[in-house]
Design a protein around this nucleic acid. Sequence first.
DNA 1: ACATGGCATGTGGTCGGACCAGAAAAAGGG
DNA 2: CCCTTTTTCTGGTCCGACCACATGCCATGT
Lengths: 251, 251
Amino acid sequence: MPVEWQPVRQSRTHELVLQSIEEQVFAGKLRAGDRLPPERELAPVFGVSRSALREALRVLETIGVLVAQPGRGPDSGARIVRNPDDALGRLLRLHFALGSYSLHDVMEARVALERASFAAAATHASEEDLDEAGAVVHRMSQPGILPEEFNELDTRFHVKVASSSGNALTSTLTAAVRESVRPLILRALEEVDDWPATQAHLNRQHAEMLRLVRLDQGDEAADLAELHIRGFHGTLVDEDRTGGDADGATA
Amino acid sequence: MPVEWQPVRQSRTHELVLQSIEEQVFAGKLRAGDRLPPERELAPVFGVSRSALREALRVLETIGVLVAQPGRGPDSGARIVRNPDDALGRLLRLHFALGSYSLHDVMEARVALERASFAAAATHASEEDLDEAGAVVHRMSQPGILPEEFNELDTRFHVKVASSSGNALTSTLTAAVRESVRPLILRALEEVDDWPATQAHLNRQHAEMLRLVRLDQGDEAADLAELHIRGFHGTLVDEDRTGGDADGATA
DNA sequence: ACATGGCATGTGGTCGGACCAGAAAAAGGG
DNA sequence: CCCTTTTTCTGGTCCGACCACATGCCATGT
């Protein structure tokens, strides 16, 4: 094959600053809860302008490893935190909107993640978590509920089960993936023919999944969860052709 | 439970700009390949300074939906792209380093994702993809190979199988999750007692997984992949106690 | 007519300084 | 001692300028 030179693209000082901060994190010298020096002090330390430093901090903020607060006192300034959920959610939401993933891809990912969630929840979930999930299902079962709120509660149910499994990563991924298709799901719920029947059907599945989890029947719960998700996405996937690869991307 | 008021935190003009651009994406008015106006023109359109606009663009860039290039000509300026892999990789890498996820969480997520990958690859992968994966396994099997390169190739193998499954999302997630524990895996490989034996063992599994995929035996391939991943992470998980929840986060 | 070199133009990237809003600490007054 | 006012420190924003680089244009020379 040909040599395929590619530009070296050095410079971009804010990336160098970013890299430097990242190294501190990887080395364990910067940990969650630590505070960074004020921007006006830190910029000269790196030998860059405040703007460049701020852009690096902005990157860390969008990743969810840093929050900044103005003012004075112990809570002010830039602090290292661990809040991946919002960042991951926004990332997947935008990329799904841009067509980086098809709805089919999202469905398969949900199946994979939530199968694991339900299976693990059966053995690891506390009574408290399950009661909370049960309360959500109960609220979803109320007669007059609208698709809007149902969608909200459905998300909460699935995320709650995921978090009750004790796995922070799959929980975060589940929430983010579910979140990325929320508008689509909502539209689908609003356009369904017999909404009360659909609502009842979905909630029967929810209740049954929860029952299986309580009985420690993880595999059965996972199977039902897969059925639940596939059944729900199934009608959407057929009419969806946003997916896959096209032009102008990943370059 | 108590009401738990939380601050509303308005302002932050760059977030408003960001929100405005995101809406254009969600509405489909901004699509992959589109170019944004120059910063000096766009800033006054939003009624903000160039710095604030730039911070919004920087956020989009770290999410992987935008690239910017200086200079002049058709390739210059800010363009909408779809490159989630780097963004997702950096996100998980940093959060793993910060202890947002335990190694156990990562292992379970890998099992869930890669089970799906191998199962789907059995039915969807092209001969070409599988040959490529086979070539990687072949290179990993060479006698004198060092853990460093082995780790690199192992990542490529798993990611290749994931991408061959035709699911861009699970592929991206697999790559990012695998990437986040790469340093740990490398260290583990370097500290193994009998490296050649370990190498041979892992490659037997790789070859067997690939064989099962070629035979369209997706379930068996998934089972072996799970065994493969658990076996590999197993020794690490025991000595790892970074995980779970602690202080100063997610606030 | 064509190739070549230099110049103007336009892009993101960076810099320095200034000011604003808000919150806490410090100072002042009862 | 408590309450009010002032100061101080923080991130957030804005403005204007310059830099590096790539392109396009134009004059020049052959």
